[in-house]
Amino acid sequence: MYLSISTTAFGALSVVKQARKARTESDTLLLLDAVVSAAAIATGLAILVRELKRIGDDDVLFG
C-alpha cells in the first residue's frame, strides 16, 4: 500500500514537470497528455484512499 502511495506521489511530480515544460514550449499536445496523466493519478489516489478506509474499518487497532 505504501509503495503505491509513493509511486503515485512520484508520478505527480513527473506530471507537474511535464506540464511546466508544455507551457514553456506552448505544446498543446504535451499539455493535454499532462492533464490526462493528472486525471489518472487523481483516480488512482482516490482508489488508494478508499482502500485505506476499508483497511481502517476492518482493523480494530488501526482506528
Rank of each mutant, 00 (worst) to 15 (best):
M1Y: 07
Y2I: 12
Y2A: 14
L3C: 06
S4C: 07
S4H: 08
I5M: 08
I5K: 11
S6Q: 12
T7H: 09
T8E: 10
A9F: 09
A9Y: 04
A9P: 00
A12N: 03
L13W: 05
L13A: 10
S14R: 09
K17D: 08
Q18I: 03
Q18A: 12
A19G: 05
R20S: 04
K21V: 09
K21N: 14
K21E: 15
K21H: 09
A22F: 03
A22Y: 02
R23D: 08
E25K: 14
E25A: 14
S26P: 00
D27V: 03
D27A: 07
L29H: 11
L29G: 10
L30H: 11
L30Q: 12
L30I: 06
L31I: 04
L32P: 03
L32F: 12
L32D: 15
D33C: 12
D33E: 15
D33K: 15
V36E: 10
V36H: 11
S37K: 09
A38V: 05
A40Y: 10
A40W: 06
I41K: 01
A42S: 08
A42G: 05
T43A: 14
T43E: 11
G44D: 01
G44L: 04
G44R: 07
L45K: 00
L45F: 09
A46Q: 00
A46M: 01
A46G: 02
I47E: 00
I47F: 01
I47A: 05
L48F: 02
L48K: 04
V49N: 01
V49I: 06
R50K: 01
R50W: 02
E51W: 02
E51L: 07
L52T: 10
L52F: 13
L52P: 01
L52N: 12
K53N: 13
K53H: 09
I55P: 00
D57V: 03
D58I: 07
D58E: 13
V60F: 14
L61Y: 08
L61F: 08
L61T: 09
G63L: 10
G63T: 13
